[in-house]
C-alpha cells in the first residue's frame, strides 16, 4: 500500500501549497522602503524512503507605508504551474516596541485568494499572523516566535459534510539575518498541531501523529 500512497501523494501533497507559506513580513520596513522576496519551502513529508520539505515557491513585493505599517502582496509561483492564480495580500503593523529590550509585537492580517483557469473556481481564506520579535541588535538581525492563523469561511466540505476545521493554528519560530540590501530568513512552522495527520494519503512529518513540521527559507532584496 505504501507504493500506492507514494503514487497518490503527488496528487495530494500539492494541495498544501495553497495554504502554507512563511510569514511575509514580521518587522515592518522603514517608511518608503520597498522589498522583493522569494520564498521556498513547505511541510516535511516522507517520500520514497526519505524526509523532504515540499519545495513550494512564491514571490512577494512589500512596501513600508508608515514607520509602523508595511503592505505586501505575493504570487504563488508553484500554483501558477497548475493553472491556479494565487495571491496573498496583507499588511504588517507594529503594535508595540520596547526600546530598551528591543522586543516588538506585530500583527499581520492577510487575505489569501486563488482562482483556477480550469473551472473558474475561486477560494478565499483570511489569515492573521501574530509575531513577537527580538532585535539582536537595533535594526539588525532578529528572531521571532508567533502564531499563523488560517480561517476557513465555508461551513461545509464537499458533499455537504460539516467543516470541522474552521480555525487552523500554526505556531512558528524564525530568524532573519538583516544585511544592508538583503534579508535572509529561515522559519520553522508547526502546521495544524491539533489535527491528526492520519488517516491520509500524505505521510506528513509531525509530532506524535499530529500536524506537520514546515521549513521555509526566504531571500528578500530591499530598495
Amino acid at each position: 500500500m505504501k507504493k500506492i500512497i507514494y503514487g497518490l501523494a503527488g496528487l495530494l501533497i500539492i494541495t498544501q501549497l495553497f495554504s502554507c507559506m512563511p510569514s511575509r513580513v514580521v518587522r515592518p520596513l522603514d517608511k518608503g522602503q520597498r522589498a522583493v522576496g522569494a520564498h521556498l519551502g513547505g511541510p516535511l513529508i516522507g517520500f520514497a524512503g526519505t524526509t523532504i520539505p515540499m519545495p513550494f515557491t512564491s514571490i512577494m513585493y512589500a512596501q513600508g507605508v508608515t514607520e509602523k505599517t508595511t503592505v505586501f502582496g505575493s504570487v504563488h509561483t508553484t500554483s501558477l504551474l497548475f493553472g491556479v492564480i494565487q495571491t496573498d495580500i496583507g499588511a504588517c503593523h507594529n503594535l508595540y516596541y520596547n526600546d530598551s529590550l528591543r522586543i516588538g509585537l506585530s500583527v499581520t492580517p492577510a487575505v489569501n485568494m486563488a482562482y483556477d483557469k480550469w473551472e473558474s473556481n475561486f477560494k478565499l481564506w483570511p489569515q492573521v499572523d501574530v509575531n513577537m520579535y527580538w532585535d539582536i541588535r537595533p535594526k539588525k538581525s532578529f528572531v521571532y516566535v508567533g502564531v499563523d492563523n488560517w480561517f476557513e469561511l465555508a461551513n461545509t466540505r464537499e458533499h455537504d459534510q460539516p467543516q470541522e476545521n474552521r480555525w487552523i493554528v500554526n505556531p512558528q519560530i524564525g530568524y532573519t539575518n538583516v544585511r544592508d540590501k538583503w534579508n535572509h530568513n529561515i522559519e520553522f512552522k508547526y502546521l495544524a498541531p491539533n489535527l491528526d495527520n492520519e488517516p491520509g494519503v500524505v505521510d506528513y512529518k509531525g509530532v506524535s501523529g499530529k500536524g506537520a513540521i514546515g521549513v521555509y527559507i526566504s531571500f528578500i532584496r530591499k530598495f
Binding site: L12, I14, T15, Q16, S79, A114, K123, R157, G200, V201
Partner: peptide, 14 residues
C-alpha cells in the same frame, strides 16, 4: 484533496 489540505479547496485546483 480536502482531507489532505484541511481547507475546503476546490478539486479543480489540482
Amino acid at each position: 484533496i480536502q482531507d489532505a489540505s484541511v481547507l475546503g479547496l476546490p478539486p479543480s485546483f489540482i
